[in-house]
Design a protein around this nucleic acid. Structure first.
Lengths: 332, 332
DNA sequence: TTCAATTTTGCAACCGGTTGCAAAATTCAT
DNA sequence: ATGAATTTTGCAACCGGTTGCAAAATTGAA
């Protein structure tokens, strides 16, 4: 049992309030008193119990970090950046893995029991309602990598997936592909839906270009590979915009495995620019999602909501850009 | 502000103790009373404050999950399994990212402030002293993927890295390689040191086989690739045992890039069997580390320490085995 | 030195729960 | 119906802190 406030107070021969104040900044303590208390605290190895103080202050500095993407390597980068960024601000991430269950009620109850000061929902696949239900429960929430809505109920930080779809389409057009396809992630993911929509929308402006689409079962290597193998059975398209990088890498593997050449026979463009996309043996042309900016901004936003919980909801969108590597043929 | 015990008690017209008891299992409450309280609680949407109750019970159900491996994709699997496993037992992972700093004192203080019931140190690179300092601070701790010591100060769950080194050596010998090398992770990592030791030890029994070694800067693709490129400048060995899979993949990339064939010109064997190792475009022969078992066992162990904090320290080691794929030439 | 203004300190109540103990209520045997 | 045994309930103190308020101590001006 670690020493408590009372122990320190007794040893220093002062009141408990005095001890409390020396550990609360902004409180009025004389230098003499501070020295006495700090000496006693040091000798005892005291450090204040954050949970006990949260009872009266109403602040735990705990932030729920909720995600269901524990299989996409890019989320390791995401967790790294989130944990570092939160730590730097003195906040503590309480990690919640949603992989097993999709009922928000359970997570909400749990996070409320732990009195988290706020919640970050980091997912590109959950419906916006999920994040909204936190807000409805009165918990400050930011939805990172979430779906952009023109009138958001909840803070969203991420990219404009529809615009990314358009961007991919423009890129394929620019490189002279005439027969293109969308190879999406799971059809239920909001990010898939939006990217698909933008892609098709843009290509409608080019009626001479033929467009097809299909959806993989998950944002994963195997799903991408399996789906691409199916496409290859029949006459495949000239170029594919894949739902994300890991899916692209699966598709890439399927293409080379079947003896075709990338980008000569088939072009591929991904989305995310995860570290792996730049590996020399993959070298994927892709659309870069600025995850570091998204995360910094998310953290700043959730931190500001601790001061002002009713902050008017906003959507913060960061532009993406094409990173040219080796899986699309050069512009003619 | 969510409803409190007092609110429920008033609405139900009973004492606060009665409400507390209906939410504490094992406590004596009549069915009549329970119904009354539950009704009031439902109407108010009450759920007990875990942090407040931790004050008196001394249990937070918070477990510190400490790691410094936020760049190796296998750790996404690790976090996935840990969070799921802990959640299943009603425990909550408080994630601590050690990437920035190596001073344990800071993390220990922080985790004590949050009164975590226990700590899991998940790292194959931290020195054993790190985990030990938690134990010295009176916090139950399990070191997962840590270094095995014959007289451990602290619970260790993982693999026998020395034995893995021997296993790799035996495998290369068995396949008739006569000029082999160890391409390790950072020399400071305990896992590197142990794997190296086992590898050399085993090969001393085969004086006819030549052995060399070098160390990459990190367990990462780029470090593996860079180190292998250097090796390729001069006359390379016939086969390399790489520190881990991600390093192997980097090395593999360097080899193929330089126009050599794997496994015909150069053989490679990794360690971990991360998901990616099985991808068709990588197809890495490797030594499988049973991470799921390691994690289940770690969780079971930390959970048992909540009951018995002074449980006598033990080392739990799980056997590894070679997974044959395409980067070592077949046995003659 | 004296006294008002200001700062520092301690008291005591409170945050949201839990729990030992004794009183009240219920059960059960007679 | 009676009284002992058992169960249920409430009281009140406590967990480890914080904070409004008033008393005590210090500062500063005259």
């Amino acid at each position: 049992m670690p020493p408590t406030l009372k122990d320190v107070a007794e040893r220093a021969g002062v009141s408990r309030a005095a001890v409390s104040r020396t550990f609360t900044d902004g409180a009025s303590v004389s230098p003499k008193m501070r020295r006495k208390v700090e000496k006693a605290a040091d000798e005892l190895g005291y450090s204040p119990n954050a949970l006990a103080s949260s009872l009266t202050t109403g602040r735990t500095k705990l932030i729920g970090l909720v995600s269901n993407n524990f299989h996409n390597p890019i989320f390791l980068e995401v967790f790294d950046l989130f944990t570092r960024g939160l730590q730097d601000r003195g906040l503590r991430p309480l990690l919640v893995n949603l992989s097993d269950e999709t009922d928000p009620a359970h997570s909400i109850r749990m996070l409320r029991q732990y009195s988290v000061d706020g919640v970050v929902v980091a997912s590109s696949t959950l419906p916006p309602d999920f994040a909204k239900s936190f807000r409805d429960a009165g918990v400050p929430v930011v939805n990172s990598f979430g779906r952009y809505a023109s009138s958001p109920d909840v803070h969203v930080v991420g990219i404009d997936n529809v615009e990314c779809g358009r961007m991919a389409a423009r890129e394929l057009v620019r490189r002279g592909y005439r027969d293109v396809a969308f190879l999406g992630g799971p059809e239920s993911a909001t990010s898939t839906q939006d990217r698909f929509r933008g892609f098709v929308e843009e290509l409608q402006r080019h009626p001479e270009i033929s467009v097809r689409h299909s959806f993989a079962e998950a944002y994963s290597f195997n799903a991408g590979r399996a789906e691409m193998l199916k496409r290859l059975e029949d006459r495949p398209a000239q170029a594919y915009f894949c739902g994300d990088d890991v899916l692209s890498i699966g598709a890439l593997s399927a293409v080379t495995e079947s003896g075709l050449k990338v980008p000569d026979d088939i072009g591929l463009i991904g989305l995310n620019d995860m570290e792996m996309a730049g590996w020399e043996n993959i070298n994927l042309t892709t659309i870069r999602q600025p995850i570091s900016q998204i995360i910094d901004s998310s953290i700043e936003l959730i931190a500001s909501m601790l001061e002002d919980p009713d902050r008017y909801p906003e959507a913060r969108l960061f532009p993406c850009r094409v990173i040219e590597r080796g899986t699309l043929r050069p512009v003619r």
